[in-house]
Design a protein around this nucleic acid. Structure first.
Lengths: 155, 155
DNA sequence: TATGGTTTGATAAACAGTCTCATTATCTCT
DNA sequence: AGAGATAATGAGACTGTTTATCAAACCATA
């Protein structure tokens, strides 16, 4: 089986350069806030809520005085440009992660909340086939497996 | 490919009897509101938001005078007991459907919000294999394909 | 049908996310 | 580097969804 963990597939410098190019292309401005948001997402191994990201940035760059609205605005912009992707959790909102990885799915432990990523070629293939069959123009897809992770089973 | 639509797998009378048994078992009461909520979910072919469900019930049973809080409370209770399941839409809330169907996945139009159900054996199989590989004890799984449906592509 | 615990509707409150707008920052052109 | 044009920002008001509170109504049981 081709299932495997995902890894960062891009250096931060390259990501930043691409981001700057994108901003220029769209006549958007490269601001301190946008840089720090991108950087914080890059160096975080976790899936972050906008609120959590806001906290991290306030701690690391208090002088920036970044507002929560800017976090939301920037995350939306990054998602529109496929730089980050989000996972929905119903009333509990969304969590964001840098999309500069291969597409992947999630396995979520219902006990400890840990999220494990994986990529599976068979599933990726099949999703395309299904969308095609229904005449659906696929934009995105997500799959979650819920259960108890190995660690929690042992405790 | 084995992809196909799903159908109701239970008669309403049986569902109602099961529901009454569950309530008794948990020392909960069988109320008019709970009955109408279950019934409305059963006879609706759609995935409903709590708000939409509330509207339907107000139209059909105005004398019930059902409050929105009761809709939320009952949906949570039904979900806890695996009688309904929900789909998340980020800030746009959740949509609920009766779980008394075979397991199935969802294809969601990001333009009109229409939800199409499907079952695919290849995907079901693969999910089990993946969970096994990671030593994960699978409890549930879900898959969503987001895109533009045929109807919306034509408009 | 009396009793006691449960459920209810109304409404207040919490919450996430969006919008507005005056101020500040960035970019471009010179 | 400076100026002008324009985009981005932070603060906080606002929206829509979901939850909590509580007195009154209801249901199951005896």
């Amino acid at each position: 089986m081709s299932t495997s963990f995902t890894e960062r597939t891009i250096e931060y410098d390259k990501l930043l350069a691409d981001f700057k190019a994108l901003l220029k292309e769209k006549a958007l401005k490269f601001t301190n806030q946008r840089e720090k948001i991108l950087e914080t997402l890059y160096y975080s191994q976790e899936h972050l809520t906008p609120e959590a990201l806001h906290q991290l940035i306030k701690e690391k760059y208090p002088e920036l005085n970044a507002g929560i609205a800017t976090i939301y605005r920037t995350l939306s912009m990054l998602e529109d440009n496929n730089i980050v992707s989000s996972l929905s959790f119903g009333a509990q909102g969304k969590k964001y992660e840098l999309g500069a990885k291969d597409h992947h799915d999630h396995m979520i432990c219902t006990k400890c909340g840990e999220i494990t990523e994986f990529v599976d070629d068979v599933i990726e293939d099949q999703q395309h086939k299904i969308a095609e069959k229904f005449g659906f123009k696929m934009q995105d897809h997500s799959m979650q497996i819920y259960g108890i992770c190995k660690k929690c089973q042992d405790n």
